[in-house]
Nucleic acid binder design. Structure first.
Lengths: 197, 197
DNA sequence: CGGCGTACATAACACCGTTGCGCTAGCCTG
DNA sequence: CAGGCTAGCGCAACGGTGTTATGTACGCCG
């Protein structure tokens, strides 16, 4: 060792925070390494020693985006009625995606081309929808849904919400049907009804 | 006029065809203007006079991708049983997306950041799922689904398929459930059952 | 106290999309 | 029939990107 490390964990979180801010404000396109380093008071070398490059930084943002998403879903207050809770989760999912679309893009859009999350990042991402699996489990216990694998049903529900959000963000929802929130509610009610015993 | 135009409609389709080929093989990342022009035996200026730039080229590819998708869906042979036809459409949708994921990325992923399709491109994109609306309409006529707005039900079905495909392409489908195709069938059967009268 | 080795910032590199320059090639006029 | 005018186009320059190589300043150890 020759001199004290400046590229330490503290700088890593500072860079990540700054990247999160830029991502939130300007989107993935606005994320430039030089500007990021300058804003954090360091040089681009730091990004390479701490993240290995821009793909590594994006993977860290992928994790962060799912963590934020997970926090939003964890804040949902349950009523105890599984189907209502499921709808609450879905609407929280939608609200979070519409409120921070750039993060949604990092999670599900192919950003800049190559965000290859790696297995453990994918596993953490999958953990995000654990609350939904649990709600489905309670619905099954309550006799509201048939006794299938909860993950299967939860995946179907998740896919439906995710697909609706994706279409809505692409402005591809046919808008003759009034409030989009109603469409979510009706579609998800239908899915859960379809899995009724 | 001074000399015969080389940047004509023929060159436009040649460039588009070459772009389609490159997109299909190398993905959006592999689409470089210089290489594209060289492959087509012209210069980058042609892309600007014919498409206005790279965003214009990507919008043309957006249209082309949806056209291909529409052709795949139009090739589905109907049995006459609306629910079976709906499943056939869904599996054709999935097959097309998995077979040409780069086109799917152009259609639904935020490619390179800015593919802003413009209203008439969006309208053509929405036309793509017209067959699904018609199948739903037949299901309603046959008394298999409740007499709601067919577009609403079709949108719910579309979102479900689209969401599943999106998750599958992201390798985010929980794989303990065996064949993913079964998951599609079960989820979509549930959705259509949820809209039963 | 001096040399060493490392950790860093800075500058160079290759490439991108975009744009201005300038040559080239055909019609129109004299 | 010749020559200039100008539109059309290839080419090279520009600003910017992510990445990599270079040089430098610093703190420890002999």
């Amino acid at each position: 060792m020759a001199r004290p490390k400046l590229h330490d964990e503290a700088l890593r979180v500072r860079l990540l925070e700054q990247a999160v801010r830029t991502l939130s404000e300007d989107g993935p396109q606005g994320l430039r390494l030089r500007k990021l380093a300058a804003d954090a008071g360091t040089s681009t070398t730091a990004v390479y020693s701490l993240f290995g490059g821009k793909p590594g930084l994006l993977e860290a943002l992928f994790d962060e985006a799912f963590a934020r998403f997970g926090r939003r879903l964890a804040e949902v207050e349950y009523t105890g009625e599984p189907r209502a809770d499921m709808l609450a989760l879905a609407h929280a999912y939608r609200a979070s995606a519409l409120h921070e679309p750039h993060f949604y893009q990092v999670m599900f859009g192919q950003v800049g081309g190559v965000v290859d999350p790696g297995p453990e990042s994918r596993a953490r991402a999958l953990d995000t929808f654990r609350p939904l699996v649990e709600v489905v489990g309670r619905a099954i216990e309550a006799g509201l849904m048939r006794a299938e694998n909860p993950e299967t049903i939860a995946t179907a529900l998740w896919a439906c919400v995710h697909g609706l959000v994706s279409l809505e963000l692409r402005a591809l929802l046919p808008m003759d049907g009034g409030d989009p929130a109603d469409l979510y509610t009706r579609a998800l009610t239908a899915v859960s009804a379809g899995f009724a015993p």
